[in-house]
């Protein structure tokens, strides 16, 4: 996990989910800890696709519940 990549990831989450930066940590759960519902996650993925110039299929999002899981999904595409 490079700092620069995670910073960029975190900035997207802060912007879309309007949460404090220090809450966006690998163990944070989108639903319980970041108050994000399924449409919030769709918007977050769109922001990440834009920021990292990648494509994420809807099917790839199944089972993604934490910030760490989402970050791994994104960083594997870089």
């Amino acid at each position: 996990m490079t700092d620069a990549t995670f910073d960029k990831f975190r900035a997207c989450a802060v912007e879309v989910l309007q949460v404090p930066q220090d809450k966006v940590v690998p163990d944070a759960r989108f639903g319980d800890d970041l108050d994000a519902d399924s449409l919030d996650l769709v918007e977050l993925v769109m922001a990440l696709e834009e920021a990292f110039d990648i494509t994420v299929e809807e099917s790839e999002l199944e089972g993604i519940e934490t910030v760490g899981q989402a970050y791994d999904l994104i960083s594997a595409k870089l």
Partner: peptide
């Protein structure tokens, strides 16, 4: 400008 995949889910 960006196509249908960037339309807000909201």
């Amino acid at each position: 400008q960006k196509g249908p995949n960037r339309i807000s889910p909201f």
